[in-house]
């Protein structure tokens, strides 16, 4: 199947179209953040401006259309700039860890023998450590900050890609067209890039798409636990953590502070959901068994 055909099918599939539209809208918001929510301090645009020093969140008003969170952080500003944070974390972590996984999985399967043995044992060790706990421990050691979160997430996120890529490459490396390339005198580099990776990469892309959502959720979890991005940083997880003390509202008005949870929660949900929709649609299109 060719790229054009896949894109065409993605666009024809309603579910994936919804996912695609949401991602594009969020992407546009991220790109145009400086115009949608101009920063007060252009040197530090990721820090949410505060509308005072009071503790209690304030409901949506004319100046603060999404209201303010605990500490008077402007929710609208946090959502807009938080979309950038989500994309940066998602693309960086998924991109780099997929790349590591692709390289290791390919080398492992292609060369086999003791190389395969070593890479797979290391992968097993990393896989045996629970992901969220590992990320929590590592960010606690490294300290708060976007860069540190991403390092921690990358460190424990490449293994499933490596395994997937390895099994993909194993299934294809003895195909006749690979043998033909070898018989023609192609070197390993050419065989791996021109013949093997192009024929094994799609499942990895599907996995990566699905992975975008869960990585952003884990990053948010770290922020929620107070070991993620620094205080006041525009990050959806951080914004939910500001809602922690206000979720229950007040006596007689349980939903009084709904905006503190609902708005950042919706943003995270939409982000994850749409990557999953795209991944799902991708899989349906590429899995020949699903086509009837």
């Amino acid at each position: 199947m060719e790229w054009q055909e896949i894109v065409y099918k993605l666009l024809k599939n309603k579910i994936s179209l919804i996912g695609l539209v949401i991602i594009i809208v969020l992407g546009l918001i991220a790109i145009f953040a400086p115009w949608i929510a101009p920063p007060q301090n252009p040197d530090q645009p990721y820090y949410i401006p505060r509308a005072g020093w009071g503790n209690e969140p304030k409901p949506p008003s004319r100046e603060h259309i999404f209201g303010t969170a605990e500490g008077q952080y402007d929710i609208f500003y946090g959502i807009i700039w938080g979309s950038r944070t989500a994309f940066i974390i998602g693309f960086t972590v998924v991109g780099i860890s997929s790349l590591i996984g692709i390289i290791l999985g390919t080398i492992s399967a292609y060369y086999g023998g003791w190389i395969d043995e070593i890479i797979m044992r290391v992968t097993d060790i990393f896989m045996s450590i629970p992901f969220t706990i590992a990320a929590i421990v590592m960010t606690t050691i490294l300290g708060r900050g976007l860069g540190n979160i991403m390092i921690a997430l990358i460190t424990f996120n490449w293994m499933s890609t490596a395994r997937l890529m390895r099994s993909q490459v194993l299934s294809i490396k003895n195909e006749e067209f690979v043998q033909a390339a070898r018989a023609l005198g192609a070197n390993d580099f050419r065989i791996i890039f021109k013949h093997i990776i192009v024929n094994t990469i799609f499942p990895v892309l599907i996995q990566a798409s699905m992975n975008m959502g869960s990585i952003v959720i884990t990053a948010s979890t770290l922020s929620f636990l107070g070991i993620g991005t620094p205080e006041g940083y525009a990050d959806w997880g951080q914004m939910i953590s500001y809602a922690r003390n206000w979720i229950l509202g007040t006596q007689g008005n349980a939903l009084k502070y709904w905006f503190t949870v609902l708005i950042p929660g919706t943003a995270i949900t939409l982000f994850c959901l749409s990557w999953n929709l795209i991944g799902d649609a991708f899989r349906d299109i590429l899995d020949p068994k699903m086509q009837s």
């Binding site: 195909e175 006749e176 067209f177 043998q179 033909a180 390339a181 018989a183 023609l184 005198g185 021109k194 013949h195 192009v198 024929n199």
Partner: peptide, 24 residues
Amino acid sequence: EMREIRKEMQIIFQDPYASLNPRM
């Protein structure tokens, strides 16, 4: 040295579906 020999010795495979890279 083997690379040079490959110019003189070639192979045609059995399965016309598996022997051509589908993405080329």
